[in-house]
Amino acid sequence: MSERMKNGAASEYALEIENLNVEYHVDKEVVHALNGISLKVKKGETIGLVGETGAGKTTTGLSILRLIPSPPGVVKGTIRVMGEDIGSLSEKQMEAIRGKLVSMIFQDPMTSLNPTKTVNDQIAEVIRLHDKIGKKEAAAKAGDMLEMVGIPRDRGVEFPHQFSGGMKQRVVIAMALACSPEILIADEPTTALDVTIQAQVLDMIRDLKKQYNMSMIMITHDLGIVAEICDTVAIVYAGSIVEYGTLEDIFNRTAHPYTVGLFGSLPNMDDRTQRLKPIQGLMPDPTNLPSGCPFSPRCPRATAECFAKKPELQNIGGEHLVACHLVKEG
């Protein structure tokens, strides 16, 4: 890791993604998972990445860690972490970044936990991977991390299967935070949890984020979670960002027909008798995307132009970007 990255002096942004394209070449088909997405995350800021199954959210997260398997993955575009282009780094330099500068929490805690090791040992291992400290010291720090996520340190001698789902997820969070990363990528971190436990875990993530002044990418399909912990939001549809802005832009000045459709699909908590307004149809096939606007086959407002030409993201005021032929500034 270069000095510049450690100090992060080069940029006010912790993360900058420019024109990221990811394809997966499987058999004779090409899955167009990401089609030119760009986004920026300031230091200490949380961005919500919202989209449905297959939109490309996890692919975005893995790209930031340079963990897209190749083959089948083909990645193009620029990703800067703390100002440094990760495309130019060696694999060895990348290893030093993973877990240290950038950490990722996966949806299923068991993908990150080893069933044959005690939770304390697993956290200590991550710490020793990046910090040159002794075993004892690492074990003590692992205990601190457990306490920080609300698990008594004496339970560190237990194995993952002895923990409930919420506790396992908290261990994974402790592991992800053990080296105080600058950027935390949380991929649906609470989807598998009960609401009351989800509330606990989200509360904790929010507190820790503040305490460490981390930047965070919250991957989720739950607009409620977005409202609670994000500063900015990118709505992703079929591998493209279709709307991008602050919380207020997305929630109170909703502009893209897809985002409007997402909100319409949610039950109205103030009036339970109000009928849902679902989006018709299904996500397009990522191996055969529509040539115009990716949303055009499902869009209630689509015109001939929408089927012919893919709309670019355009600024419609402040930092609110929308990719739709019918939504214009003002």
Binding site: G224, A227, L247, N252, L266
Partner: peptide
């Protein structure tokens, strides 16, 4: 109280168990 509400106004106080 734990339901994440997809609205920015009138946020409720959460009861954390």
């Amino acid at each position: 109280s734990a339901i994440p509400v997809p609205k920015l106004e009138n946020r409720r106080e959460r009861i954390i168990l």
